[in-house]
Amino acid sequence: MKLVKLLSFCWAALAVAGPAMAQGAGDAAAAGGGISLNLGAAFGAGLVIIGAALGIGRIGGQAVEGMSRQPEAAGNIQTAMIISAALIEGATFFALIVCMLFN
């Protein structure tokens, strides 16, 4: 069931990202890539977002579990969680920009 949800989310991400990165008729010939390059960038952007969402979700879940087990360490766990989530977001933005630049 999880695999079906993941595949449907990937398909939806590709369907939304494809038209957003579409080029005009004259631009496709100048770029030299055409539709295959657009699909590659859209697929790459979708994978980046899915990976970031899974990573941040896991960080949040594990942090809450750790805080419930050791309430006295909640401040340290929360600080580490925020720093880790920020690093993941930075890598995500970098990967998205790379996907858009090579469009």
Rank of each mutant, 00 (worst) to 15 (best):
E89F: 14
S84D: 05
E65T: 09
A95N: 00
A17H: 02
L37W: 06
E65V: 08
R58V: 13
F43Q: 02
A20W: 06
G55Y: 06
V16D: 01
I83H: 09
A15P: 03
M21F: 13
I97G: 00
I97Y: 02
A15C: 14
V4Q: 14
L101F: 06
G60I: 05
A42C: 02
S36M: 13
A42V: 00
L87H: 09
S8W: 11
G90K: 08
F93D: 10
A86R: 13
M1N: 07
L3V: 12
I88M: 03
G46H: 00
L14A: 10
A53L: 11
N38V: 14
A30Q: 08
P19K: 13
M67F: 04
G33F: 05
L37F: 13
S8R: 12
A28R: 07
C10W: 09
F94Y: 09
G55P: 03
Q62T: 11
A25L: 15
Q62F: 09
A85L: 08
Q62D: 08
M1T: 08
G60H: 04
G60M: 04
K2G: 06
F43E: 01
A30M: 08
T92M: 02
A12N: 05
G26P: 03
D27C: 04
A15D: 07
P19C: 12
A25R: 12
A42N: 00
M81S: 12
N103K: 10
K2N: 12
I56R: 04
A28K: 09
V48N: 02
F93C: 08
E72T: 05
N38I: 14
L54Y: 07
A42K: 00
A28Y: 04
E89H: 11
T92E: 01
G90V: 13
G57I: 07
M21L: 14
L87M: 15
L96Q: 00
Q70R: 14
I59F: 01
I83Q: 09
